[in-house]
Design a protein around this nucleic acid. Structure first.
Lengths: 115, 115
DNA sequence: CTCGAATATTCTTCGACATGAATATTCTTT
DNA sequence: AAAGAATATTCATGTCGAAGAATATTCGAG
């Protein structure tokens, strides 16, 4: 999960992933479409492969890279866990603030006894 | 979008965000629950605030931080764009490979004329 | 089996950034 | 106004990783 995030947290890698959304592509094509030097593209793809975001399929001397669904599924699931925020809980803050004031009083009591 | 990703692509920041899912919390609480030194927590929160992942609400000398829905909405939307992968398109690769072989032949023709 | 095309790997350099330590700021309480 | 709690900021240091250049590898074609 975290590996997926940091893999995507790099501009060129993100561009590569978004380009691959259009379909599988060989390194050379990615390289020229994004105006990136071939070695960097290869390195990024290597990284993306390690975290499972892409898969490779050799075709002659070319390597065709394509997106793999798993990481996206998981990302989706992760974000879903934050769905509770969608319909904002406005009073939450008020509650927390009350809690704080409450604890404060208790601490005050303890402090008086200890020091 | 990209800023959100790189903000989350840091272990402790991710932990902070996940902790905040349980509800708004003041810096000190986050600090001790995650066993992180206060200054680091403050810095991370600053970063998170800049990219809009969290908001602050001052309560006396404390600052209560809470998650903000927007970035999560956007992340969700972004991942949604990759939903096409869910029900895998197996033949895609075959198609691309055919394309490649086709282009290859064309290039061969051009090469013969140029060189 | 040599050549050339496509891709991968290695090595170095450089900047970004997380951490730690120390200090500054803000607000409450007395 | 002074003291102390909660948080923010500054500065120095070390690490990681992206980019560049050069080279290695793989594979099909003649």
């Amino acid at each position: 999960m975290f590996e997926t995030l940091s893999a995507l947290a790099e501009p060129n890698r993100l561009r590569i992933v978004e380009l691959l959304r259009a379909g599988p592509q060989p390194v050379g094509e990615i390289s020229q479409r994004l105006r990136l030097r071939q070695p960097q593209v290869s390195k990024h793809l290597q990284l993306l492969k390690e975290v499972g975001l892409v898969g490779v399929q050799p075709v002659a001397q070319q390597r065709v890279y394509q997106l793999r669904p798993e990481p996206f599924r998981k990302l989706h699931a992760w974000v879903e866990a934050y769905r509770g925020l969608w319909d904002a809980r406005f009073d939450e803050l008020a509650v927390v603030i009350e809690d704080l004031k409450q604890k404060e009083k208790e601490n005050a009591r303890h402090d008086r006894r200890k020091k």
